[in-house]
Design a binder for these strands. Structure first.
Length: 426
RNA sequence: GGAAGCGUGGCCGAGUGGUUGAAGGCACUGGUCUUGAAAACCAGCGAUGGGGCAACCUGUCCGUGAGUUCGAAUCUCACCGCUUCCGCCA
């Protein structure tokens, strides 16, 4: 959520900054609503003040043992007008509130101008895509040939966009998770965290998935308003909801492995084959809660932590700065990591690292006590995949495949597979 | 699932329906004292919104939401959460 003060005192400039990401702020509607809000709020407060004073006078008169019937009648009259004003104010504020909740974050000044993914800017590349002396297969064929990846079985159990894996392949996925967790906890200073895979509406509002993106979520039947988490970002970032954190506890760095559930509504034609886009996938997520001053250096650092995973896995990748028009709703700046997929001869997204500045923190009421002011102030939140495990598995299979259909296991994963060097058909 | 109890400021904790934003304590900040520190003593110290160039004025907040009342932390109802006991359970 944006600072509502921006809409009151700096409306046109805010609209201009939002236009960079292709969002057209309806300034006229907001200005009108704001004006009504202001006058009705002033009126409401005047009535409240009169009623309070009147009621206080009643109390004082009663304490002195005086007759209060005249006073009572007078104050009762205020109550009626007050109720009207209050309910009107409530309506306007609800209207304004839902409007504000629907406004995306303002792009940081360093974010390149652009409309969509075509305008994203490549920052750097790492590693050399391998040259094959045979036609590289995609992960679906590799998995089928190994006899360890079964989409039909998954379709029978659940439907499309799910997968069943077995044997060394299932174990490889587990190894990837373990390796990532060990790296981030052991070398990057993150705290391993286990969380619920179900979240309530308040939590999803806090991180920005609700109210705007309910269609992307799996909702659980029942009255509680539960959803399956679309990313560990939701439960982990909500750890600091409604908290005032001591300054010395910042930065906080959390790493968390969870399955992620996404309905992927509106992506029916995309990546229908294989494991790239699934309703359920594993992810290791990095979350940082930092002082506002530090959030942009934290973004560079966090992105580096995600990159380290790819480097250790010896997977070629590039880093992209998302342009203003391609960023997610809550982000102020985002780097995507894209891994090389030989079968597609393309780099494909495997991590997304974002600084949300105070956008999530404001919804979450996540604050810290700034020693300079002594006051609670909003923290900045960041997160990034470190990494999407399903896609990392795809990348390992495709980049390390051999002519004979076997897959060499990256050195760094072998200790997690009991020293296994090659995955062969079972 | 059944029964009982409880949700108050950063933390602990008091609070007969009436000048209560809320006693007291801890923590924190400033000061006195001290060679320095601690202790002691003194003072300050909740959050959040609106209006105003400003001094300042003012609203709201005692788990959440409704209700009763001129007036609610205090009474009623619902919901949420926590604790304890019983039952069930990996």
């Amino acid at each position: 959520m944006l600072d509502p003060r921006l809409l009151r005192s700096d409306l046109d400039n805010t609209a201009k900054r939002l236009a960079r990401r292709g969002y057209m702020l309806d300034t006229a509607a907001i200005a009108t609503l704001e004006e009504r809000r202001k006058s009705i709020q002033a009126l409401t407060q005047r009535y409240q003040n009169e009623r309070n004073a009147g009621s206080k006078a009643v109390g004082q008169a009663k304490a002195r043992g005086e007759d209060t019937s005249d006073l009572l009648a007078e104050v009762a009259g205020i109550g009626v007008r007050l109720k009207e004003a209050e309910s009107e104010l409530e309506t306007i504020q609800a209207e304004l509130g839902s409007l504000v909740m629907g406004i995306p974050n303002i792009p940081h000044a360093s974010v390149p101008e652009g409309r969509d993914e075509r305008d994203n800017v490549e920052l750097r590349r790492w590693g050399e895509p391998r040259t094959f002396d045979f036609e590289p297969r995609d992960h679906v064929d590799i998995g089928a040939q190994l006899g360890l990846m079964d989409f039909e079985a998954a379709a029978k159990i659940a439907g499309t966009r799910f997968v069943v894996m077995q044997g060394a392949l299932a174990r490889l996925q587990r190894a990837l998770i373990q390796f990532m967790l060990d790296l981030h906890t052991g070398e990057h200073g993150y705290r391993e965290t286990y969380v619920p895979y179900v979240a309530n509406a308040d939590s999803l509002k806090g991180t920005g998935q609700l109210p705007k993106f309910e269609a992307e979520l799996f909702a659980l039947k029942g009255e509680q308003g539960y959803y399956l988490i679309p990313t560990a970002e939701v439960p982990v970032t909500n750890l600091v909801r409604d908290m005032i954190l001591p300054a010395e506890s910042l930065p906080r760095r959390y790493v968390c492995h969870t399955p992620c559930f996404r309905s992927e509504a509106g992506s029916y034609g995309k990546d229908t084959r294989g494991m790239i886009r699934q309703h359920q996938f594993e992810k290791v997520e990095l979350v940082q809660i930092v002082r506002p001053h530090d959030s942009y250096s934290a973004l560079e650092q966090l992105t580096g932590h995600a990159e380290a995973v790819l480097q250790r896995l010896e997977l070629p990748y590039r880093v992209i700065t998302l342009c203003s028009g391609d960023m997610g709703f809550s982000a102020a700046k985002t780097y995507d990591l894209e891994v090389w997929l030989p079968s597609q001869r393309k780099y494909r997204e495997i991590s997304s690292c974002s600084n949300f500045e105070d956008f999530q923190a404001r919804r979450l009421q996540a604050r810290w006590r700034n020693p300079q002011s002594g006051k609670p102030e909003l923290v900045h939140t960041l997160n990034g995949s470190g990494l999407a495990v399903g896609r990392a598995l795809v990348a390992v299979l495709e980049n390390f495949q051999q002519r004979d259909g076997t897959v060499t296991i990256p050195q760094v994963l072998r200790p997690y597979l009991g020293g296994l060097e090659t995955i062969r058909p079972e």
